[in-house]
Design a protein around this nucleic acid. Sequence first.
DNA 1: CAGTGGTCTAGACCACTGA
DNA 2: CAGTGGTCTAGACCACTGA
Lengths: 256, 256
Amino acid sequence: MVSTNASHLPIHGALAPFAKVKQFLKAELVGGRWPPGALMPSEAELVGQFKVSRMTVNRALRELQGEGLVERVQGVGTFAAQPHKVAATLTIRDLHQEIEARGHTHHSVVHLATTEAATADLALQLGMPEGDPVFHTLIVHFENGLPLQCEDRYVNPDCAPDYIKQDFTHVTPTRYLLQVSPYVDAQYSIEAASASATEAKLLGMDAGAPCLVVVRRTTRLRSQLGDSGGPHLTEGITIARLVHPGNRYSLQGQFQ
Amino acid sequence: MVSTNASHLPIHGALAPFAKVKQFLKAELVGGRWPPGALMPSEAELVGQFKVSRMTVNRALRELQGEGLVERVQGVGTFAAQPHKVAATLTIRDLHQEIEARGHTHHSVVHLATTEAATADLALQLGMPEGDPVFHTLIVHFENGLPLQCEDRYVNPDCAPDYIKQDFTHVTPTRYLLQVSPYVDAQYSIEAASASATEAKLLGMDAGAPCLVVVRRTTRLRSQLGDSGGPHLTEGITIARLVHPGNRYSLQGQFQ
DNA sequence: CAGTGGTCTAGACCACTGA
DNA sequence: CAGTGGTCTAGACCACTGA
């Protein structure tokens, strides 16, 4: 995803040259010239056409590549991309921030904050030995007094030794972990499921009611030193299962 | 999101200079130097430190900005970003392609393909007058014979006059619309809901069972000509409500 | 071999900010 | 005013591709 930041206006309203080239190519791509897979003009051709330097054309094409609109192959050329795999952006914020941004009040109730022995599955996901201690918290977040999210989270003590000592009625785990151990990478899955009896009770809904479940796993490189040999090994920081009442929560996003 | 494309290796395994600068800054940011909001080194300082040209440093910083890791203000400086709004990427593909990519077979059943008069709400969302004709299709997609998605879609005839004449057992609406009227912009929301009686029947599930519902609205600029005056008006191309059995479908994604 | 994209350089002009 | 980032240029060297 590429930010839609400052509007590239060198002077009053005029687009910067690289932005002109980009806009032209985008319009033509959208307009159907160069069907997916078709060879597009080379940098040299665009240089001639727009009377700009190659670096300028290069930037326009590189950004279009970043946006997934073209594919470039060294020694071969630039091609219109297949428009079928679309990278959408989905903004996931710290829930506290998200609620405050809506002008609502947030509070949370901590139901569990313990240290447990890692099960085999958990150990595998966090990249630690089975039976080693892991932190486990279960927190319910409220928006204006209504339960919005049940956060069931496991944390690798190596990454945040003081995690369990925090007062999670004041700092959300997400925020704390971002500060202590900024993530390098995270994967998530989103699915719909029925509320379990426990979840239903915590969220104040009927058992079996639909929930939006986000499972998020955050990892970092095991060695920040990065020995040149071997693959980049990652270490799990935390795994969170975030359950939301289906009728009170949705994720929003957009493409392009 | 920014593509993780070619690995910027000019020669055997050595990082390109701009990538080195970027990597250094990223590591320091992750390592906690420059807490969120802190002023980072200027381009000139980095030029001196890395013995590279300013354009090279500029590219590194611009890409970090695109990734949301830094914020830049002309005349002021570069600052470490607040790490709380994270742009995640979520890949949404044409369902046919997605199923084929898994090595499975896809087929679809068309339950409805008609022309209707736009209701007030639909007219508003598609940016057309109430009562004007809209195309309406209801198609169920199967993966290896199991129903995976119920696609309830309205299409603006202005954008795809021949939409309704297509044989949707051979081309998915998504694919057809992308070809005929490439989108400019799309918004979507994701939520969990109970299957209605109709949806349950179409998807072969129990009524009330949890479903993952994606509502996607695609728009394009009304005038490709772009009169310099006035705001960019958009026109709705299509609105689709995609309902998936909660136990058979999930969305996957990752950050950074 | 010619053509392609990937990248860097050294310098330039500019708009913007804040002292 | 000095310092900042935004951008462009004209040239360069390189790796890669396919004829």
